[in-house]
């Protein structure tokens, strides 16, 4: 008979997790929204996010855990370094300039790598590590969220991606618990893609993917339909992404609840986000394009292009 250890009452653990998630959701959503409203990323000359991009993303997300599981930790760290550096560079180079961004990335990563190897013997050490970790992950999530949304990702895409991730989460967190194993193996290494906090002997953490989807859903709703839609999206995120994720183990597994186990957050949030999208589509109609959103923020509509044309011509003079 296994001995169940409860450092603190289950409801308190759930509440603590909820607070951690809520903090993460508030920071990432408000940060992503502020960025979306005030910073314009340089986008490629041609290309807008489309449905096939969602499929490609889901395939990559589905394959990546196997790749991570197969690679040695050092290689995973290298991949994460490149990924986070790219995200931070794309997101914050326009704000900090070339010197500033590389200095910032160097400091953040250096501190993270150093603390991953030296100070995690105590709860305070863990919390310091989590704090740095969270800064990097939140900044990364905000940058990637805007990269996608300012690249033309629509609420429709986010909703379908959430639904896809719900299936992914159910498979990889419950039936084939690869995600949990990966986290358990990698948790003390630099740039682990989670935010969190340690209280006593329990880690309360939320994954980068979850944060990204929450911020995408929130800001995409804002872009598509405005602030009231964003408010609804925010509420859905808090209820299904935060509250339900934190309290499901408490509600449905009273005897064996152990919050160190992985909760498949997207399996709860994905269907709710998708249904919310369907409701918004029916209620508000067509989503705004990026051009329409920008026009709504400014009385000046995008200027039409007026360059001259080399049209096909038939013959010489």
């Amino acid at each position: 008979m296994p001995v169940v250890i409860f450092p603190i009452p289950q409801w308190e653990e759930s509440l603590t997790l909820f607070c951690v998630i809520l903090t993460g959701v508030i920071v990432v959503c408000s940060g992503a929204l502020a960025y979306f409203r005030y910073v314009r990323m340089v986008r490629p000359p041609v290309g807008a996010f489309n449905t096939r991009d969602v499929v490609i993303l889901l395939i990559v997300i589905g394959v990546l855990p196997f790749v991570y599981g197969w690679l040695p930790d050092t290689a995973v760290t290298c991949i994460l370094l490149v990924t986070f550096a790219s995200a931070l560079y794309i997101g914050y180079a326009p704000l900090l300039g070339q010197v500033g961004i590389w200095l910032g990335i160097g400091v953040l990563f250096g501190l993270n790598i150093w603390s991953s190897n030296h100070i995690m013997g105590t709860v305070a050490g863990w919390d310091w590590w989590y704090a740095q970790q969270s800064v990097v992950v939140l900044l990364g999530a905000i940058a990637v969220c805007n990269l996608y949304l300012q690249g033309g990702m629509k609420l429709r895409h986010v909703a379908w991606m959430s639904l896809g991730l719900a299936c992914y989460d159910i498979v990889f967190a419950s039936y084939y618990p690869l995600t949990g194993r990966l986290i358990a193996r990698y948790i003390t290494h630099p740039l682990t893609p989670v935010i969190g906090m340690r209280f006593g002997r329990v880690d309360y953490a939320l994954g980068l993917g979850d944060l990204l989807v929450y911020s995408l859903f929130f800001v995409a709703a804002y872009k598509a339909y405005g602030k009231w839609a964003a408010t609804i999206a925010g509420a859905v995120t808090v209820v299904f992404g935060g509250f339900a994720t934190a309290f499901v183990p408490f509600l449905f597994n009273f005897t064996n609840a152990n919050l160190d186990e992985l909760v498949p957050a997207q399996s709860l949030f994905g269907p709710a986000a998708f249904l919310t999208y369907l409701w918004m589509k029916r209620h508000y109609g067509r989503e705004r394009t990026m051009a329409e959103y920008l026009a709504s923020q400014s009385s000046t509509a995008p200027a039409p292009q007026v360059e001259q044309a080399p049209a096909p011509e038939p013959a010489s003079i």
Binding site: V42, R43, P44, P45, V46, G47, A48, N50, G152, T289, M290, A291, L294, A295, A301, P302, A303, Q305
Partner: peptide
């Protein structure tokens, strides 16, 4: 698709 979403092509078009 880019024009439909953004109204104009990106900076380096």
């Amino acid at each position: 698709a880019t024009l439909a979403e953004f109204g104009e092509a990106g900076a380096d078009a």
